[in-house]
Simulated assay, not measured.
Amino acid sequence: MQAPPPRITVEVPVLAVGSGPADYESLGGLVESLRKPQGLHLTLLHVGILEDLAREIEDWTKGITPADHAARVTVRWLYSLPALDGFDATSDRLIALGGGRIAGLEVQVPQHVHDYQVSLVQGLRELLDGLLVDNVDDFILGSPALGFRYPHWVPHVAVGRPPLRERGPWDIRTVSVSCGPSRIRNSRFLPAPD
């Protein structure tokens, strides 16, 4: 069976939670199926499956912007994004996300990280406008590929599943969250920019 196409995101890797492995492992008493610390990340912008987004753009523009052109321009845009340097943050509670299927650390990030994320969304708007998408905000909110579910960004790190029948949030002892520089997740699956 063929693996589904990868989702593309702009994210920062989480290098450490707390002062040592025990700090992260202690979250296992609060959540089900604690994720391995090596894959933890904080998503700044979800782009989704590139081919799906490109098709949505073609459909929205009634073919004025072909999907292959939309994909090429989107890849060029992704690779042109400035990098965000690594930063330190904190978390003092767990929240339920994804309709209650995911437990995440709600992360208090520095103001420049919020500003960077806002610039990504503004850049996305400009990208879509350049691809001749009208009513850009309607497109963004309605796009299954982009998957915008909330009107504002909640910085979080998914760590497992919430306890059964509980919605949270759950207060925890404050832990540090150390993040590395921004990157494009699954970039190895993108075509080279032209």
Rank of each mutant, 00 (worst) to 15 (best):
T90P: 00
Y150H: 15
R93Q: 13
I95K: 13
G28W: 11
A145R: 05
T65L: 02
I102E: 04
R185K: 10
D68E: 12
A158Y: 08
V154P: 09
R188G: 14
V47C: 03
D85W: 04
V12D: 00
V175L: 12
A22G: 13
L120I: 03
P21G: 08
P151D: 11
L34R: 05
I95H: 08
I102C: 09
P13L: 08
L141A: 14
L190E: 06
S80P: 05
P169I: 04
W60N: 01
A89C: 10
D92T: 05
L124A: 06
S119P: 11
V177T: 05
D88A: 14
R167L: 10
A3G: 01
G86E: 08
M1K: 02
F87T: 01
I49A: 01
Q38N: 07
S176R: 12
R165E: 14
V159D: 01
L40M: 00
L50E: 02
K36N: 09
A158S: 14
A96R: 12
E51F: 01
P66N: 11
R165V: 07
E166S: 10
G168Y: 15
V17K: 00
G98R: 15
V73Y: 03
G39E: 06
L34C: 06
A16F: 02
W60R: 06
D137K: 07
D88C: 10
V133R: 03
V113T: 12
T174E: 11
S119M: 08
